[in-house]
Write a protein that binds this DNA or RNA. Structure first.
Lengths: 223, 223
DNA sequence: TAGATTGTTAATCGATTAACAATC
DNA sequence: TAGATTGTTAATCGATTAACAATC
């Protein structure tokens, strides 16, 4: 695998989709796929897929296509799935709990080590086998356990502080589920945010456009 | 407000962010802001912000900047926040419940009408004041209540079927939280997916790059 | 071999940035 | 008025698409 110094974020955002589609293909027993077939099923052009893979060196065989399992493995490698990354969850409210109980961290190459909260009622318990510690002990824990990602499901009011504490302790990644855009030093940490609100508003926009278009079309010819 | 026939998705994806930042500014009492100041706080260029707003006609005053409250309101209008859109939740597992209990639908212009599930234990109860009905009664409900968006938090195995049922009943939007890319007819429905997995894998990639860069730099000059 | 499909470069398209006249 | 900042067009940059030689 060739390492490309600068891969565009557009490509990076597609890599997980490739990985997911290839996993599905693998499960349904498909062994080989061409860029055009994969493109069709993903809504991309064959050209774009080949161009994307070319960023990392290209993993196909001319005249044949791509072997589903090796391509999946290569992309998994690029994504860093086999690097033994670890994660801790900050905040065990409804959302934190739901993610701990349902999200398949291991399928994404992560090991979920622990959760933290300030609520004495949950501190000391386990959620789906994951121990919950008091947030005041976060730094102690981080000093003893290498943690790759801190998952923020704390209330908005605590988001910035927890982000700062993770960063100060040297945690390289923050997965932010609060609807707050935390300030951070991009030299020290990578922040990936999941903004439910932004997603719903974008959907709202698209639905609204449909409604307006439908109204417009009412008075127009069907051409 | 001018209606632009074709606004790029890049712009659409930024609109919710503008809305969120303007809301924060409004809360902290800021009345006016220039494109350059807003750009600085959002990590965009002033040019891009003016270009984005120009898609819809531009809402500023030359020599002055933008009034925070009117700009926020205009963008809210563009996003369709005051259109009385409605939503139902399909699936009241951990994630569905977490979203029902925590997500501020009303701040995003939605009214949460009901939830549906197949588990007889929750059917007939309420979650945070929202009634839970049996999934078999979905079509009945949709026939009687105009629903704009169906939120999918069902198991992956049920995702496609529920999506199809929503579409068949004329629901124009699907907000998909299952880690499954549902097939749909783009003429009939808009699907917006929140893929936790894709988000974490992208973060994984970025962290991995840092690790590899750090290793490389170890042997290099500090230039 | 002939056919298929990739790897890779070139062309096109679209999005971002720059520039500046308009104007508050 | 002078200064500031937008609206809007033009220039640049980057990403996608097209093309085709390489080769399995």
């Amino acid at each position: 695998m060739k390492r490309n110094s600068k891969v565009s974020t557009a490509v990076i955002r597609r890599l997980p989709r490739y990985y997911r589609h290839l996993s599905e293909l693998q499960e349904t027993g498909v062994v080989r796929i061409s860029s055009s077939a994969l493109g069709k099923s993903m809504g991309l052009t064959a050209s774009q897929i080949r161009q994307d893979l070319f960023c990392f060196g290209g993993f196909g065989q001319q005249g044949y296509g791509y072997k589903v399992d090796t391509l999946k493995e290569e992309i998994g490698e690029i994504l860093g799935i086999n690097r033994g990354h670890t994660v801790v969850v900050l905040g065990t409210g409804n959302l934190g709990r739901a993610i701990i109980e349902n999200f398949r961290f291991s399928s994404n190459g992560f090991h979920l080590l622990a959760a933290f909260d300030v609520n004495e009622q949950v501190v000391g318990t386990q959620i789906a086998g994951v121990p919950v510690y008091h947030a005041r002990d976060l730094e102690d824990f981080l000093a003893k356990n290498p943690v790759s990602v801190g998952l923020l499901t704390v209330p908005i009011s605590a988001a910035q502080e927890m982000g700062d504490r993770l960063t100060a302790a040297g945690v390289p990644g923050i997965w932010n589920f609060t609807n707050y855009e935390i300030n951070f030093n991009p030299e020290k940490v990578v922040v990936e945010s999941v903004h439910f609100s932004d997603s719903l508003l974008a959907l709202n926009y698209m639905i609204t456009q449909r409604e307006l278009d439908a109204k417009d079309d009412g008075g127009r010819e069907n051409t």
